[in-house]
């Protein structure tokens, strides 16, 4: 469980990024963290692993305080940053050295994930391209079997087959005691994978809801003409018509469209709030 209580963070005193944010993230879910550029997605992730310290409030990951960066905590969390750093050593030296620091690291899993992500064999990790290094790092991160894995733009730099393999790996390695948080702008890479959506905007949590509730309460439709009826929450003109987010009045659910959901949460937050409030599991 990741808990944030009265969490505030600011790089400069006059411009706080987060103010008094309360959030609870139970395990067993893949969380998608979305927001515009510079709105604090990476900052939030960095605070959760203790790379940055809250200016006010407390963050807890399980019973650990991330800012203390105790080895027992660090051995149970893994962060995949947007740009990974890989030292100039052989893959085996890397795995033997770093794998030994993670009690749940599995070499068999590592080999399996490496195969699935199609990481080429090399004598030195520096010989790999950016995308290949990232795939190597993702395979290693997942093989560490840590309870918390935070990913900042994990699919950036990955080729098309690897993106698909990445999704499969995330789904296959998810367990009830694990938390995966994925921050990304590549919404289409992940929309089928996520269990829970978090949208941040100007330090505010605009949306904190499970995908089940969202698809139950909202319908993501496409119409050739503009819709004027009262159930419409937000609509925007797209090629050939209008993408409409409306209250779901049917029994059937429409597939989640993260791009539409994100735009709705930013452009019509109050209406979205109203529509989702009917579900008790939604916190806004």
């Amino acid at each position: 469980m990741i808990t944030l209580q009265n969490f505030s963070y600011s790089y400069k005193k006059e411009r706080p990024i987060y103010q008094d944010l309360d959030l609870e993230l139970p395990p067993g879910k893949v969380y998608g963290l979305f927001g515009k550029n510079g709105e604090g997605k990476s900052t939030l992730l960095k605070n959760m692993v203790g790379l940055l310290y809250p200016t006010k409030g407390v963050i807890k990951v399980g019973n650990a305080i991330p800012k203390e960066r105790k080895p027992s905590f660090l051995a149970d969390v893994f962060m995949i940053p947007e740009e990974v750093y890989i030292p100039s050593i052989s893959p085996m030296s890397f795995v033997r050295t770093y794998g030994a620091l993670y009690p749940k690291f599995s070499f068999d899993h590592f080999c399996e994930y490496q195969d699935k992500l199609d990481v080429p064999e090399t004598k030195n990790l520096k010989n790999l391209s950016f995308g290949q290094q990232k795939k190597f790092y993702i395979a290693f991160a997942l093989a560490c079997n840590t309870s918390v894995v935070l990913m900042d733009e994990p699919t950036n730099g990955l080729d098309i087959p690897s993106k698909s393999q990445f999704r499969k790996l995330i789904a296959a390695t998810m367990r009830d005691d694990k938390i995966y948080i994925i921050s990304t702008h590549q919404v289409r890479d992940l929309d089928m994978l996520l269990d829970h959506i978090l949208i941040v905007n100007r330090g505010e949590l605009l949306l904190n809801s499970s995908v089940g509730v969202i698809t139950e309460q909202l319908a993501f439709n496409f119409y050739p003409q503009r819709q004027e009826h009262a159930t419409v929450i937000w609509q925007e003109e797209v090629v050939g018509g209008y993408a409409v987010v409306e209250q779901n009045m049917q029994e059937t659910e429409t597939p989640l469209n993260l791009e539409q959901l994100f735009n709705t949460s930013v452009m019509a937050p109050d209406k979205l709030k109203e529509a989702l409030l009917s579900s008790k599991t939604t916190v806004l």
Partner: peptide, 16 residues
């Protein structure tokens, strides 16, 4: 020297 290097170092499970 770089943010990615610093992240890798700070998150490696060693004590201070």
């Amino acid at each position: 020297a770089s943010e990615s290097k610093s992240i890798a170092y700070l998150l490696t499970p060693f004590s201070v």
